[in-house]
């Protein structure tokens, strides 16, 4: 009798538990492996036949995490080229971004820890962002809408052991950046970001040319007139101004643009911005609060130390720092670039 009561009780609980977990796993796939984006051992991130790796010239800084990007578009469909904005991707596109830390930045053979994989999926009615968090065993990544804080540990390029918190954003925070007029949108894949070589699979082709040859991309200018691919950290690819603007564009411009979440600040940092005031030169803050750091203007030409922009880049206080998401460390090299840019500005 007692055993029967226990059994009934146990069945009811099991059902409740199942119901709860189904509800939690309501969005498309609970596991990254369900998408069939990779072949072989999942953590090798070996792309399946229809999956193309790509890289950006100037990527967003995310606490020195390395990234591997891939994309998949449905067979027979194509991406439409344009020279200024993010490409138009067909319905069914999956953009894949893996965030990982090499155990030793000096020696890739020592392996890596993949932290998270973010998917942007183009559906009929728009883009959808889905964050997957890898387990410690590196066998699978699971959909996790609520985000998480991870401690990461690695040896950096100078041989120093580093340990810090890494914040995996929650699903809503995806849209903190991927937001244009309140619609979810990709940020990276533009002509100027993709115009460059990617040494995958032994190929030294230009990525855009490679995509066009594979029949993935239409409308690539035949004359080869592509927007310059500026790498923020490579002076051979652009002037100081171009590199600083490229860095600001990818790190700040997704929010600080018309229709972006930071448009209420009146500060616009996309690569297309021409108005010095809107770019922050001599601009007083609106609602920066203590983010102003007791300084008067966003950019004081010639005076990086008097520029709110630099002050906020140099902070890791969540109420002050910019960008406000996606980092717990300062991007020292990016800060150095922006400081130099402001220092050398005409005044």
């Amino acid at each position: 009798m007692k055993a029967r009561i226990i059994t009934v009780f146990f069945i009811i609980t099991a059902l409740l538990y199942l119901a709860a977990s189904i509800r939690l796993e309501k969005p498309p796939a609970g596991k990254l492996s369900n998408y069939g984006l990779f072949t072989g051992t999942l953590s090798n991130l070996e792309p399946a036949a229809d999956v193309v790796p790509y890289a950006l010239n100037t990527p967003l800084f995310t606490d020195y995490a390395e990234k591997l990007r891939f994309l998949r578009i449905p067979a027979g469909s194509t991406i439409a080229y344009n020279d200024s904005a993010v490409f138009e991707f067909p319905v069914g596109t999956v953009l894949v971004k893996n965030f990982f830390y090499p155990r030793d930045f000096r020696d890739p053979s020592k392996g890596r820890e993949i932290i998270e994989t973010r998917l942007l999926i183009r559906e009929e009615n728009g883009w959808k962002a889905l964050p997957y968090i890898w387990n410690r065993e590196q066998t699978e990544a699971f959909l996790d809408v609520a985000g998480e804080t991870r401690q990461v540990k690695y040896i950096d390029g100078s041989g120093k052991t580093r340990q810090h918190a890494y914040y995996i954003p929650n699903m809503n925070q995806c849209k903190g950046c991927h937001n244009h007029y309140e619609a979810m949108a990709p940020i990276g894949p533009t002509a100027r970001q993709l115009n460059g070589k990617y040494g995958f699979a032994g190929s030294q082709d230009n990525q855009l040319a490679h995509w066009a040859t594979k029949g993935l991309l239409t409308g690539l200018p035949a004359d080869g007139q592509l927007p310059r691919g500026v790498r923020w950290d490579d002076p051979s690819t652009g002037s100081l101004d171009e590199r600083a603007r490229a860095w600001l564009d990818i790190n700040c411009g997704h929010c600080h643009r018309s229709g972006g979440p930071a448009s209420t600040s009146g500060l616009y940092l996309t690569i297309h911005e021409k108005d010095p005031l809107r770019l922050g030169i001599g601009k007083t803050p609106v609602a920066a609060g203590r983010g102003s750091g007791d300084l008067q203007v966003s950019i004081a030409p010639g005076q990086p130390e008097k520029s709110i922009m630099v002050y906020r880049m140099q902070s890791t206080d969540p109420g002050v720092m910019m960008p406000e998401l996606g980092r717990s460390l300062n991007h020292q090299e990016g800060i150095a670039l922006i400081k130099q840019w402001i220092r050398e500005m005409e005044h």
Binding site: T13, L24, K26, V145, A146, G147, N170, M171, N172
Partner: peptide, 25 residues
Amino acid sequence: FFYVFPILLTAQETERKRIQSRFIL
């Protein structure tokens, strides 16, 4: 499995994660 595991799971989750999931779902 059915009683203790979920409880452990809940205990591990921070309050934030619990409330955040409700905001999202």
